[in-house]
Design a protein around this nucleic acid. Sequence first.
DNA 1: CTAGGACTTCGAGCGCGCTCGAAGTCAAAC
DNA 2: GTTTGACTTCGAGCGCGCTCGAAGTCCTAG
Lengths: 125, 125
Amino acid sequence: MTVTTESLTIAQMAETTGLSTHTLRYYEREGLMFAPVDRASSSHRRYTEADVAWVGFLTKLRSTGMPIRDVRRYVELVRAGDATMPERRELLVAHRRRVLAQLEDVTASLAAIDRKITLYEGHTP
Amino acid sequence: MTVTTESLTIAQMAETTGLSTHTLRYYEREGLMFAPVDRASSSHRRYTEADVAWVGFLTKLRSTGMPIRDVRRYVELVRAGDATMPERRELLVAHRRRVLAQLEDVTASLAAIDRKITLYEGHTP
DNA sequence: CTAGGACTTCGAGCGCGCTCGAAGTCAAAC
DNA sequence: GTTTGACTTCGAGCGCGCTCGAAGTCCTAG
């Protein structure tokens, strides 16, 4: 298999992004790609560098727990052009707020768990 | 309805813990309670202060993303007595490690999102 | 005595985010 | 020409963590 730097097959894209080919197709179906993915051989997907960067950002949104439906909303705004920048910003800022709140929550719970761990000190086998 | 300080109805327990009555029954079914919940009137649940504390800790485990099945495993260890303290500790420590890794992950993704937000600066409506 | 309401059990259903498998196409290697 | 295998679409299925609803019981107030 010859790897052109021009574009990636879905398998290469999966390798690159860390997502499965199933997930890549799923994201596309769900409207999360910025633009339709190029096709070669009249049917096989060919991903560009831009696609790699885009999926990378999608992954960051997802890994902070943004639901698919919100990611889709964001994507739609990006597609709608520069005029939506304020709204996009607002969306991301609101998301960040929620994420930070949850981080605090988790951190607090973790502290309680740590205290429990401490209670178990000295009981090593 | 007279509120005794002795015990709580499931509705009061839900109020106290922030879980729904459905979830409280679900947790019990799933074997997450330390001991069988007391009953009054031959059938209605009566929760003790100890139950409140216990569910509080369960909630902390859950809010850090520990799967139900792992919580159950932990509960089983607690029920098994003091001899399992080392294993409990190990379980919690491993969980903490995963949670911290994920916190880092989220934090890194959030940073990328922040950079994107910054790009949108100056585009306020 | 009756009505209301809070509880009970049980099994089914749901929303999410994938994940999988069947059946088909196509291009290149042999 | 045949085989291989990487891809395609499509719809179904799954694991998780609840969430819901039906049908029944029991206590309490009026």
